[in-house]
């Protein structure tokens, strides 16, 4: 067994951004371990920009049954690829699609996917994966056991896409034939769709005031609305606020909502789970207001106020009014 294999994700020739982050992670792991590094494309034979990354090999796993994603099809195909190419480590981007099939794939090898990894270290020649527990409140070092291959998925933003090392000359694509049986693909997927017309474009907002479950109930929403108003900001929210219907879905920030990068993002009563952070980490200045000094939101905040939002926000409204007067 040898080498690091990165499984990439793209749809109709459009790359998932996290594919490049996973390539960067795989290159780094391979360099640390002095192992070769390869990448796989699934459902296409066109490596596109991938051919220009520094990789020892690129495998194309292509078949008419892989044109649209199914867990059964992807698992069968990648199992065959892995058995044929014998990688020691298999890395995935921790996308919703990977969440759907990679645990199944790892199970085929009696292995456990170490999911949502934020980094790794080499300790005495062994790889230690770092992942979050308790929605980011703690970190854990996790070591592999059993027999290779070892599987891990990489959290969004944990590695930088622009750290992926370019190739000196384009890498050739090697087709890897797989045998898939249409009868074994049990689910039938309809075309993806979007629900709401996005009437609110948070992407162009200069300041965003974003509210989380710390606000406790719908009746309290006007407290943050007032802050948004005096700042001339757009109002946004974490997922539970939109799930509860306290604010419309189109104001949700995060991996299933919008991605924003305003000049200022003020997170009020938001804990800072990764699915929220990926939607707002790009803000120039992040302000966190939270009663828990250990809330993960403070790990990305430039300015923090540790306190009760029901006291802090009204005070902030007054101070902003004064400053603007």
């Amino acid at each position: 067994m040898s080498g690091v294999l990165a499984i990439t994700e793209q749809r109709d020739g459009v790359w998932h951004r996290m594919s490049w982050e996973t390539i960067a992670a795989a290159q780094q792991l391979a360099a640390d371990l002095k192992l070769p590094v390869s990448a796989a494309i699934v459902g296409t034979s066109d490596a596109g920009d991938l051919a220009h990354k520094k990789l020892d090999r690129i495998y194309a796993v292509d078949d008419p049954l892989l044109k649209s994603y199914t867990a059964d099809g992807y698992t069968d195909a990648l199992e065959q690829l892995i058995r044929r190419t014998n990688p020691r480590y298999v890395l995935f981007p921790h996308t919703y699609q990977v969440r759907d099939f990679a645990p199944k794939l790892a199970t085929r090898f009696n292995q456990v996917l170490v999911s949502d990894v934020v980094g790794f270290r080499i300790v005495n020649g062994s790889v230690v994966m770092v992942r979050q527990l308790f929605q980011g409140k703690l970190n854990a070092d996790v070591s592999f056991g059993g027999e290779a291959p070892f599987f891990a998925s990489i959290q969004a933003g944990a590695f930088r896409a622009d750290n992926a090392v370019p190739a000196e000359s384009p890498v050739a694509v090697e087709p890897v034939p797989v045998h898939l049986d249409a009868a074994k693909i049990r689910s039938r997927s309809e075309a993806p769709f979007r629900e709401s017309q996005r009437a609110v474009d948070l992407a162009s907002a200069g300041i965003i005031v974003s509210v989380g479950r710390g606000i406790r109930e719908k009746e309290n929403i006007p407290i943050v609305e007032e802050l948004a108003k005096v700042l001339g900001a757009e109002l946004a929210a974490s997922r539970p606020i939109c799930d509860n219907g306290w604010l419309p879905m189109e104001r949700q920030v995060g991996s299933s909502g919008q991605t924003v990068s305003p000049k200022v993002y003020i997170a009020v009563g938001i804990s800072g789970a990764i699915q929220h952070l990926v939607g707002m980490k790009g803000a120039k200045t992040i302000v966190a207001i939270n009663k828990d000094s250990n809330a993960p939101i403070f790990e990305v905040a430039d300015y923090g106020i540790v306190g009760d939002l029901f006291e802090v926000i009204p005070a902030l409204v007054e101070e902003v009014k004064k400053a603007k007067a």
Binding site: Q111, L138, D141, F144, N294
Partner: peptide, 11 residues
């Protein structure tokens, strides 16, 4: 268990 948590610590 196949994988193991070796250490837990604040991020």
């Amino acid at each position: 268990a196949t994988i193991a948590i070796d250490r837990v610590y604040p991020p």
